[in-house]
Write a protein that binds this DNA or RNA. Sequence first.
DNA 1: TTTTTGATAGTTTTGTTAAAAAAGTCAGGA
DNA 2: TCCTGACTTTTTTAACAAAACTATCAAAAA
Lengths: 205, 205
Amino acid sequence: MAAANDQQDIKREKILEASYQRFLHYGYSKTTMNEIAGDLSMSKALLYYYFPDKSQLYIAVMRKLANDYLKTLENRSGTFADLKEAFTFQVNTHHEFIVSNYNFFDFFRLNEQNLPDDIWQIVGEVHGTELKLLSDAIKAEVEKGTIKAVGNPEEVVDVLIDALHGIRVGAISQKKTNFPRKEHLEEIHAKKLLLVDIFIKGLMY
Amino acid sequence: MAAANDQQDIKREKILEASYQRFLHYGYSKTTMNEIAGDLSMSKALLYYYFPDKSQLYIAVMRKLANDYLKTLENRSGTFADLKEAFTFQVNTHHEFIVSNYNFFDFFRLNEQNLPDDIWQIVGEVHGTELKLLSDAIKAEVEKGTIKAVGNPEEVVDVLIDALHGIRVGAISQKKTNFPRKEHLEEIHAKKLLLVDIFIKGLMY
DNA sequence: TTTTTGATAGTTTTGTTAAAAAAGTCAGGA
DNA sequence: TCCTGACTTTTTTAACAAAACTATCAAAAA
């Protein structure tokens, strides 16, 4: 099963890496298959030998990013001293993930609506895992007796995740742009930490 | 000063009312100045006598809506038994406002980015007033001693308002559309109430 | 048999232009 | 001062050709 075809897997990885760099710097619509092929000194046709089409290539890169992100979260899961640490870690990890891959998600800003279903599937997996990890953290605390029983941990976490998503930039009367600008990410991050702080207290006895 | 020109003001009001109906039913881009004029049995040119252009007309309607909305909030301000009542009233009023004017905001969905500055000014005014009313509510509770002193009430309310904005539709893995669909508004409303509930507790002793 | 490519077919984006529709103006009438 | 019909200007739409890019395929290379 393993190493069924090393060479092929290695090449696939190389393609993913080159594509990631292009997508990261120029975004989806501004990178062409020719450019990726050029970076790898291979023919464009070969890309199509390894990946069915451009969007599937992008999605494969995205899946890899998502897996790395989730692995980071999962690795520390269950090792937290308290709820606040667990939630803060999630917010910080998410923040770093967005900051370091900011341009990559260019695709989202442009395509906004009607993204391919595979993308939504990844988003769903990520959301589902975040939901599971955080609600597990809540359940653990409930068992420890640190916080009161929460009616429905999943529901509570779902609301928190949504709420965190909603944190945008802007003191009063500033334009709240739809997709956050890069220079606002730090401010947003700080506000998220404040929200988590209050929210956690709201779950305590 | 008052009644400087009754006739003119009345006509302006009539124009605003007719425009509101058109914008509400057909949205900004699908209503023409000719149609509005037709509804009022007046010439299109007359519209331009009362309003400089189409977007200013739309903005004037919007300003009126915003004023009504804020008046509703202000009228009840200071009459609440506790913080939760104050915040819940704000969420409910906002919900009703969005539901009953849903199609009107069509303009936002299309123009998403780069809206005229006047619009952002109104949004800013609304946000500022919401912020003031809710942080006043917090300050009142702090004085009553019901809750502990909050470092910076304005900051806390700002985060809450942002968080409420972030509440979108979707259980796990559902597509979270950018601008909420009408059929999701009830679900969103319920989630907002849950968030407010937890958030308020987070502010308590 | 698997991997790779040059040539090419097919599709999407971009640019151009003309016609239609709508926005916006104005001289003049009540 | 309030109002209108006729007019001008601007924006939207449709059609279409050129360019750019995606995607395919037969055949060469390994």
